[in-house]
Amino acid sequence: MARFKSSAWGLAVAIALVALVLPLMLPSYALATECLIFAMAALGCNLLLGRLGLLSFGQAIFFGAGAYCVGILSLRFGTGIVAGLLAATAVSALLAVAIGWLATQRTGVYLIMLTLALSQMFFFLCYAAPDVTGGDNGLMNIPRPNLAFGGHELLSLASPFAFYVFVATICTVAFYLMARLIASPFGATLEAIRDNEDRAVAIGYDTRLYKVIAFVAAGAVTGLAGGLYALALKFVPLANVDLAMSERIIVMTILGGTNALFGSMLGSIAVVVLSYVLSDIWARWQIILGALLVAVALYLRGGLASLLDKAVARANEGARP
């Protein structure tokens, strides 16, 4: 019991430390904020891929839905920030019930293809509904409300620093909750399904229900990330729901590694920082990113997190005389 709690707390502490150090290493709070937001998006994908072995090309649905939800509520109805983000989480979770229920009708490549089809469908729906989503132009000039409770303003989120602290807090809590989830009996069952679904059914688990619930958890955290992204950019581009966004989230997840949740943080930082640094130096920087992805697939299957594991192991060995 103590160990289980400490592992979730340990992850929360690690995430908080990263959040503390990140702004010192990066040139702006905006960039650090983006790292944390995409870490949360990758966290959802990590749950599905790492715990269940399900690869979803539909993560942009949840990310985009969360962003549109906050954008529309904030722009049209002047909804507060907490209510807006809660709504984004809830809407994405509801969408995830539908997407998860449909996608888990099939397994393997057919599941991947289903998520791809649903994702493209959602993209063209958003594209075809400019009254709601702004279509190709997206939603512009989204106000970022201050943190308020019962009409009392608690904290202004206007400054990049204040907003970063707000995002860092949410991100830490999200990683903590996800760690609790995968360490729970529910998480154990997900691993059993990944290992041998047939057997999990035979000992009495309704495995599809578990998969759908995992989709809901993944959708919720990804939708929350999308909502925060809308507030960070003060803009919701159509690109939030396109296939490239799903691919970006998948790349961050696999690059970071799916054996540990912390990998999602590493994957997000790697992609966000790499694109920032390299795009300044060379417009065709994506050649380097592409080559890196090939190298990771071939030579570093556990992702960046496994590199960290090895480094820690070596340090421990070195410490011992």
Binding site: M1, F4, K5, R180, L181, A183, S184, P185, F186, G187, A188, T189, Y205, L209, Y210, I213
Partner: peptide, 12 residues
């Protein structure tokens, strides 16, 4: 409590 239990440790 098998499905709803998302909060406790698996060995608890």
């Amino acid at each position: 409590r098998r499905v709803v239990n998302m909060w406790r440790g698996r060995d608890t």
